[in-house]
Design a protein around this nucleic acid. Structure first.
Length: 438
RNA sequence: GGAGGCAUCGCCUAGUCCGGUCUAUGGCGCCGCACUGCUAAUGCGGUUUGGGUCUCAAGCCCAUCGAGGGUUCAAAUCCCUCUGCCUCCGCCA
């Protein structure tokens, strides 16, 4: 949600943001009208309610006086009381109507606000998915031709190693499900440990979060807008399966006011993630690049709004540190306005080189959601200037399947074995490579 | 799953039976001021959150006693539903 003050003072800022995203600009005009309607309805109710209270305050004492009154006074007082009650009855109806009108106007306004995406950062490249800006390249893709062999894709290697089983995944759960077996499972556990070691070294608080959440948590983080079709919903219980622990981590502090001197609060959440992958039919059908369920370590930060951009850079640097440690070649992109998702004002993705695809594929994503999620979740901070919504940011530390894909493909040997990067070896009992099973 | 109890403005707490002088009590903590060699103590004032009005501020108004409905001229208080926590019983990894 956006600061309503911006709607009244700088609506053009909102319009420009909507334009850059390729979303409705007319929505802003609807909002202006709805905001006006809501305020006048609220004011009307406030005034009537005030009259009602003033009137009500006379009734109690009058009834008291009536009880004490002498017989002579009684008739006059009774007439006065009857008059007041008659007026009050009429007023009560008006108050009820005004209250209903005000609440209806507020509902209209709220519904419109929920449709508005975050205001984009003016530095984000403008355009659709392909309009990203490349910020950096790190590492050099291996020249397999020069090494004299054709690289196998991650699934072929995973099967050789006895690490990945997609056939049985499909048998048991359907397409886009998989088992990590033996060395594959050990690899994920090692990655988890490396990620958590790095995270705690930087002072992030490790968290294991729920992966089922209430609608309010899902809506508060902005996943029930355009992203809704990718969310699993448990109809019988009205719960959602999260697509990332960003959701339970963001909602962790919902409805709280946090003292500014406790900020920033930084967490590293470990959870399973569930995605319907609607509209991706036929894409990435082989292997585990695109799956319905996977595990991920996600970083999440609550900070002062003025610190958010610096914090965003910090999250990106931690993501890079992790991937650097795994010796995977990658590039960093500044995601274009049309591809940000509703919550992000700015987003940086890291894309790993995938040899058998001859291209870079997304492995991490870090978003500055500014005050957008905090407003929706009512998370505020208190400092010397009072209370105001804080800023939230998120970033992938380790999305298991894609990191495993990048590791297997980039560190494979001609015989199908895979070299374990140095940083990971302590978490695999010193093991330096995985070798094909007989 | 069953039975009972509880939920008040940072924390604790009064008020709820019996609706109106509740504009929600008091203590602790915190902030400001005064006094005082310093600290402490003491005194006075302030201290939920959101919204509206207003050029700003002050002031004023509305809402807010876990949430949502209802009864009533009027609800912290009465009624209903829901949520959370606690106790007991049953079942279970």
């Amino acid at each position: 949600m956006i600061d309503p003050v911006i709607l009244r003072t700088e609506p053009d800022l909102l319009r420009e943001s909507q334009r850059r995203r390729g979303e409705s600009v007319e929505l802003v005009d609807e909002l202006v009208a709805a905001d006006e309607a809501k305020r006048s309805a609220q004011t009307a109710f406030d005034e009537l309610r005030n009259q009602q209270k003033v009137l009500g305050k006379q009734i109690g004492p009058l009834q008291g006086a009536l009880k004490q009154a002498t017989h002579a006074e009684r008739a006059g007082l009774q007439a006065q009381l009857d008059g007041l009650l008659a007026t009050a009855t009429l007023l009560a109806d008006q108050v009820k109507d005004a209250e209903r009108a005000a609440s209806a106007a507020a509902d209209v306004l709220d519904a419109l606000w929920l449709q508005v995406s975050n205001i984009v950062n003016l530095d984000s490249p403008v355009g659709g998915e392909d309009a990203f800006r490349v910020i950096d390249h790190v590492g050099t893709p291996r020249d397999f031709a020069a090494e004299g062999f054709e690289p196998r894709d991650h699934l072929a290697i995973g099967e050789l190693l006895g690490a990945i089983d997609v056939e049985r995944g499909a048998k048991v759960s359907g397409s886009r499900f998989f088992y990590l077996t033996g060395p594959g499972a050990m690899l994920e556990i090692a990655l988890l440990n490396l990620a958590m070691q790095q995270a705690t070294a930087h002072g992030l608080v490790p968290m294991i979060t729920p992966s089922l959440v209430l609608p309010s948590a899902m809506e508060g983080t902005g996943f029930l807008g355009q992203a809704a079709e990718n969310v699993y919903r448990l109809e019988a219980d009205d719960l959602y399966l999260v697509g990332t622990s960003e959701v339970p981590l963001a909602a962790y502090h919902a409805d709280e006011i946090i003292d500014a001197d406790r900020l920033p609060l930084r967490y590293a959440g470990w959870s399973s993630c569930y995605r319907r992958e609607a509209g991706t039919y036929g894409k990435d059908t082989r292997g585990i690049i695109r799956v319905h369920q996977f595990d991920k370590v996600e970083m999440f930060v609550f900070c002062r709004p003025e610190d958010a951009e610096a914090e965003h850079e910090r999250l990106l640097s931690w993501e890079r540190e992790f991937v650097d440690a795994l010796e995977i070649p990658y590039r960093v992109i500044d995601v274009a306005t049309g591809d940000l998702g509703s919550s992000a004002a700015r987003k940086f993705d890291m894309e790993a080189w995938i040899p058998t695809q001859g291209t870079y594929r997304e492995i991490t994503s870090t978003s500055n959601t500014t005050q957008f999620q905090a407003r929706r979740l009512r998370i505020r901070m208190r400092d010397e200037n009072g209370t105001r919504p804080l800023a939230t940011l998120n970033g992938t530390l380790c999305a298991m399947p894609r990191i495993i894909v990048a590791l297997l493909e980039n560190h494979q040997q001609a015989d199908g074995s895979v070299v374990v990067p140095q940083a990971l070896r302590p978490f695999l009992g010193g093991r330096s490579e995985f070798t094909p099973v007989g």
